[in-house]
Amino acid sequence: FNILGLPTELISHVFSFLSMEDRLRARVNKRLDAIELASKYYVECVLIEEMSLSKFASPSDRNCVGGGVNRDYFQFNILGLPTELISHSFSFMSMEDRLRARVNKRLNDIELKSKYHVERV
């Protein structure tokens, strides 16, 4: 089936009917990978277990550097999200965190174009 002949929205629509495992496996080439990275997933529930990574990895393995840069043990490919979603996620952060979160050019550009709600100035 010549799936690449379909427009991106239709490929994304087809993939929306796959399970999460199948969707991840379906990233068999660069275009499908990019489509998947920009897609939403519906999950009925997520179990998040808090645990310390310090037992398992050294600071360098954890990609953790000092100096106040906003990095953490949790890793997430935020640049795979479309700009609106990144901006939406950032809108739930405090102004200080949003300013610190400008850790690369794209995030800096997104933050510069974002609105802030402040209760009082």
Partner: peptide, 22 residues
């Protein structure tokens, strides 16, 4: 679209690549 999704549901990466001719 569901019909197409069912064709690749549960397949391995290699099988998907073959079905999608990629």
């Amino acid at each position: 679209c569901k019909t197409l999704a069912n064709k690749i549901n549960g397949k391995t990466v290699e099988e998907m690549r073959e079905i999608l001719q990629l």
